[in-house]
């Protein structure tokens, strides 16, 4: 029965997809909190594509923690492009043979059209007086951020806290780990994606501070204006590049390589960068960045290369099985 059933559904699928092949279609698989930014970007690109090629294009979106998304793509989710918030999750796809190892060279800026940083969102009036990473380790503070095994967002939080711990302890890695563990012990729930964590904090009223990308703290503070949630920027944070790439294997199969490349290149145009900046991201384009400088506070940013010696070293020392993340994320 399965085979006839499969065939029937394959036929139905083909029928359902038939009108879509008459025009261009693209599946963008993205990180969890990117909902609003692509909701704003995609119609603009559609207009741009119509103007330059005379063709219509539909862009489908999927959102979730980026590691979860990478897994779904490995399991067969037919994503033409990925717009992630972490290089390691694209590297997972490289290992799976879905795109070439040279994806960083395909686009400017190491293939990252915008960036952000882990920042805080606190309750009205900041009752627990949370100002910096050290406050997150206090016994009386409940911290919310997503699951570092599924969410790139949470891994940046882990790394930023670790970087702060290193600075405070003269580079002593074990002391930094103990500091990060104290923060992790204050987390009651690890949602699988950044938006889940936001829901926990804003809707379910759990926790004193939400740690997530600055882009999300800005957007959520605006969306929950009644609740009086306040943004707090720590003294130091981690430069979080948001890499994008064409999933070559899928795009070649779908015949969408040119469209996918054009889409990602368009993300670097001032038009797109302005929309991105409106969503509280920090952008690569200097002119646009200057325009929106007011809404983004000054912050000292350290990079993955400076502090940790690059992603390969991070993978080995922190995220691999039995490495430091396992020590702090115990029993989770």
């Amino acid at each position: 029965m399965t085979f006839p059933a499969l065939r029937i559904s394959a036929v139905v699928l083909a029928l359902g997809a038939a009108p879509a092949t008459a025009q261009d279609a693209l599946l963008n698989t993205s990180y969890d909190i990117a909902r609003e930014v692509f909701e704003a970007l995609n119609p603009q690109f559609q207009a741009h594509w119509q103007e330059t090629t005379g063709r219509t294009v539909t862009i489908d979106q999927s959102h979730g923690g980026t590691s979860r998304q990478a897994r779904a793509i490995l399991e067969g989710l037919p994503a033409d492009v990925v717009t992630f918030n972490q290089e390691t999750d694209i590297e997972v796809l490289v290992e799976g043979g879905l795109l070439g190892a040279d994806w960083r060279d395909a686009l400017p800026n190491g293939a990252s059209p915008w960036y952000s940083l882990p920042a805080f969102l606190v309750r009205d009036g900041n009752p627990k007086n949370i100002q910096d990473w050290s406050d997150l380790a206090r016994d009386d503070v409940e911290v919310i951020f997503p699951n570092p095994r599924t969410s790139g967002n949470a891994r940046y939080t882990y790394l930023a806290a670790f970087a702060y711990g290193l600075e405070q302890n003269d580079g002593d890695e074990d002391a930094a780990e103990a500091f990060v563990k104290a923060i992790f012990d204050n987390v009651p729930v690890f949602d699988t994606g950044g938006r889940g964590a936001t829901q926990t904090f804003a809707e379910r009223n759990i926790g004193d501070v939400l740690v997530t990308f600055e882009a999300e703290t800005g957007g959520i503070a605006a969306a929950y204006a009644d609740a009086g949630l306040e943004r707090v920027t720590p003294s130091v944070s981690l430069f979080a590049a948001f890499p994008v790439a064409v999933v070559t294997e899928v795009a070649e199969r779908n015949g969408t390589v040119d469209l996918a490349t054009a889409y990602l290149e368009w993300l670097y145009t001032p038009e797109a960068q302005r929309i991105v900046a409106q969503n509280f991201y920090r952008v690569a384009n200097d002119d646009v960045a200057a325009e929106f400088a007011d809404q983004l506070p000054e912050v000292r940013l350290v990079t993955v290369d400076e502090v940790f010696g690059g992603w390969d070293a991070i993978q080995e020392n922190h995220f691999a099985e039995g490495a430091r993340l396992d020590n702090v994320f115990v029993n989770q």
């Binding site: 590691s67 979860r68 095994r149 599924t150 699988t192």
Partner: peptide, 8 residues
């Protein structure tokens, strides 16, 4: 479900 999403 979470384990699945963690790739575990």
């Amino acid at each position: 479900y979470i384990r699945l999403e963690e790739f575990d």
